[in-house]
Design a binder for these strands. Structure first.
Lengths: 249, 249
DNA sequence: CGTGGTATTGAGATAAATCAAAGTCCGTGG
DNA sequence: CCACGGACTTTGATTTATCTCAATACCACG
């Protein structure tokens, strides 16, 4: 199993995730290891959970990029979050019955499905794990807040730059970044749907960022030429990601 | 005490809030009643929690309107949420050490302060209350998502209309709306900071909404002339507020 | 009855959208 | 190995939504 999925089994991924946001005891680890997990692979651009669904399981992303989005009747689409390996993109379905958005793959993905029933039993036994999940939800909410700021009041180039800073930072945290950049398998149309810009404008703003010597792109790789300068330009302050905070027992 | 605060003591407000998102047992109610709560009044436009703070208590809004916002170095300001009586606008400080935004009053407010220490003891004793808090956080996150959509891809008039629908709906839920509208003590500049529009543009878009026969405004009251039409126009679907969902024990 | 904060109006500037056409890249199959 | 097709990126030209600045009008309150 872990042979076929280079980034570890679902259990390992989940334990690593929770350990990164709260301390996890030995018993809790054993409980997590016992969770029934179903691993599945998906092609790119596949809808995994539909808007309006009431799923009976959560997803843990093992490999690939996913996104949450809302499709408006006007034809417009807004991406509200990107997800990278280690994320629990629809954790809220444990507590909220109806999906108010859709969840889909952006690239080919490996996803681990964990039944709500098993998760509820587990957090019933280990309240500390409920706290870890709650904390994860709160960090996600903090990211949403920053996205409101991003689309609400940053000009095009800064808006893209800020998104790049966030993704780089998050990928780094799970060991998926390189020294000078990261994989960025997102088309300009996708970046547009995430930033509230048209794809044509995204293209021009990327040229702007390249012209400023902040980034370079080759194929699906985003090279960050000067991280400090990029962050300053974007007004990026990683505090909102709440990564380096003291872990309480 | 409850004599001086018409909308009930802090304890009542908190119990009502939690009961609206999860079932609360008799013992839990007793535990909540025993919380040490400090009530305070504030004038309008006062910052209650600062960006970067690490508070040791949560706020429960008893009376008035509050808002969460981020001030950018560029001088721009983005409001990321509005809060009405019954809300816990900084509940996340129970789990996240650093405020990544500020919290302030919009109107004169009555706020109940509840120490983290007491809350942590309580949720330690009653894990079900932790779930209720978690659920509240998730509903707030759902509202942030919808705000990303609002600012990201709705045109001016629809954007304002959507915000009005949301506020009316939420005020209704806590019994603070009238049949045909609600108090709306928000200046056009404030509405602009929330929707990512300039105050001048807000003014023109309000005229647009009035011209369409959707709303009317007198003094600080927002009259909703045709709720159906307004919701259709805004593309408003209250699902994301997760109000009517089955309450699990 | 001022006076300060809002709301409104007008005119001009600008960021970003739209539409349409090339251009580039990349995988696939012949 | 090359040619093809489809998806993505880039470019140009035009239109539109929204911003900015500045002036004026309207209240509500002391």
């Amino acid at each position: 199993m872990s042979a076929s999925f280079p980034h570890g089994s679902g259990h390992d991924g989940l334990i690593r995730k929770l350990a990164s946001i709260a301390s996890v005891s030995r018993d809790e680890r054993i409980g997590l290891q016992a969770l029934p997990i179903l691993m599945r692979s998906f092609p790119a651009d596949q809808e995994i959970v539909r808007d309006g669904d009431d799923p009976d399981h959560c997803c843990l992303l093992i490999e690939g990029f996913m996104h949450c989005y809302k499709q408006l009747e006007t034809g417009k689409r807004q991406i509200v979050s990107f997800h990278i390996p280690g994320d629990l993109p629809d954790l809220q379905t444990m507590q909220l019955n109806v999906m108010d958005h859709a969840l889909g793959t952006l690239t080919p993905c490996v996803v681990a499905f964990i039944p709500h029933r098993a998760l509820h039993l587990l957090v019933g036994e280990f309240p500390n794990l409920a706290v870890a999940f709650w904390r994860d939800s709160l960090i996600n909410a903090a990211i949403f807040r920053e996205w409101v700021v991003n689309v609400g009041c940053r000009p095009g180039p800064q808006r893209l730059a800020h998104l790049f800073c966030e993704l780089f930072y998050r990928l780094e945290t799970v060991g998926l970044a390189h020294k000078d950049g990261c994989e960025m398998p997102l088309t300009q149309a996708v970046l547009g749907d995430a930033t509230g810009l048209s794809s044509v404008h995204v293209n021009r703003m990327m040229q702007d960022l390249r012209g400023r010597g902040l980034i370079a792109t080759k194929a699906k790789f985003l090279q960050i030429l000067d991280r400090e300068k990029l962050q300053d330009f974007a007004g990026f302050d990683p505090t909102y990601l709440h990564m380096k905070e003291v872990l309480s027992p």
